[in-house]
């Protein structure tokens, strides 16, 4: 053990704490960046093949507001798409839980949506809807929708038989079962989907922007790529990665709030 600070959790027999995580992640990423920098300098790799981290950092510093504005556009599209996909996914899962006869048909349709490659749809949406944010929101929503639907649907059916028997013995209504049992049971499933989907949302918006956009990180990347401005391309990738990580952290924070009843349970606490 490198650090043996106070407040560590014993989990699976190993010591574990957040401070230690941050430090070890920092050390590993720092070492990787140093190796990258060293390799580029020693081999004298041309900047249009692979720029050194220092060159990327320089570009980040010089073009901060240009990239920052582009990132804000992409973030807005990603959040819009995530919220839309989330809303439609939850609504659909709820609907087929109440109207069980729709379940098969709706799930088949959802798989069809899922099976369609987004790379093929993105240019179509751009032709139909233009270069504005709407096609990006739709692409991100399509990416979000399926995992949310499948997970929430599983969660709504993951209620203990004994709990259902209890509600049955009280002749509780379906809405009461939903409110008291099904929906809370689905929350952990919902957040499992969100952890996958939230970082994917940024990527989805960026990919959609490659297909044609008037603003956003994807457009910045595309322009940089067309001009072989690789430091700029990497700087834009950096922004997109930071936003993905940010959304992931946001989801984890919300999860801890939403699934509060697990907080006291040492095994499932993070």
């Amino acid at each position: 053990m490198w650090f043996n600070t106070k407040g560590e959790n014993v989990r699976n027999g190993a010591t574990h704490n957040t401070k230690q995580d941050v430090i070890s992640a920092g050390v590993i990423i720092g070492a990787a960046l140093l190796a990258w920098e060293g390799a580029v300098r020693v081999n004298q790799t041309p900047v249009y093949i692979l720029p050194a981290p220092s060159a990327i950092a320089e570009r980040l510093w010089q073009n901060g507001s240009y990239l920052g504005n582009a990132a804000l556009v992409t973030l807005g599209e990603a959040l819009g798409g995530l919220l839309l996909g989330l809303a439609v996914g939850i609504a659909t899962a709820t609907l087929i839980t109440f109207l069980i006869q729709l379940e098969r048909g709706v799930l088949a349709l959802a798989i069809l949506v899922k099976a369609t490659p987004m790379v093929a749809i993105a240019p179509l949406l751009t032709i139909w809807l233009g270069f504005g944010p709407l096609p990006k929101v739709i692409i991100t929503a399509l990416l979000t929708f399926f995992p949310v639907l499948i997970n929430v649907h599983s969660g709504l059916h993951a209620v203990d038989e004994a709990v259902l028997a209890l509600f049955h013995s009280l002749d509780a209504g379906r809405w009461e079962v939903f409110r008291h049992a099904r929906w809370p049971a689905a929350l952990p499933y919902l957040f499992a989907a969100l952890k996958v989907v939230a970082p994917l949302g940024v990527t989805g918006a960026v990919v959609a922007e490659w297909a044609g956009a008037s603003a956003g990180l994807g457009r910045a990347m595309w322009l940089a790529y067309a001009n072989l401005n690789l430091p700029m391309l990497f700087a834009a990738v950096f922004y997109s990665a930071v936003m993905s990580i940010g959304l992931y952290v946001l989801v984890i924070t919300l999860e801890k709030q939403a699934i509060f009843w697990r907080r006291n349970n040492a095994l499932s606490a993070d």
């Binding site: 004994a162 028997a165 008291h180 049992a181």
Partner: peptide
């Protein structure tokens, strides 16, 4: 009133 081996409490 129904009660079984599984307490069937709502954890939330």
């Amino acid at each position: 009133a129904w009660m079984a081996q599984n307490s069937a409490l709502l954890p939330w």
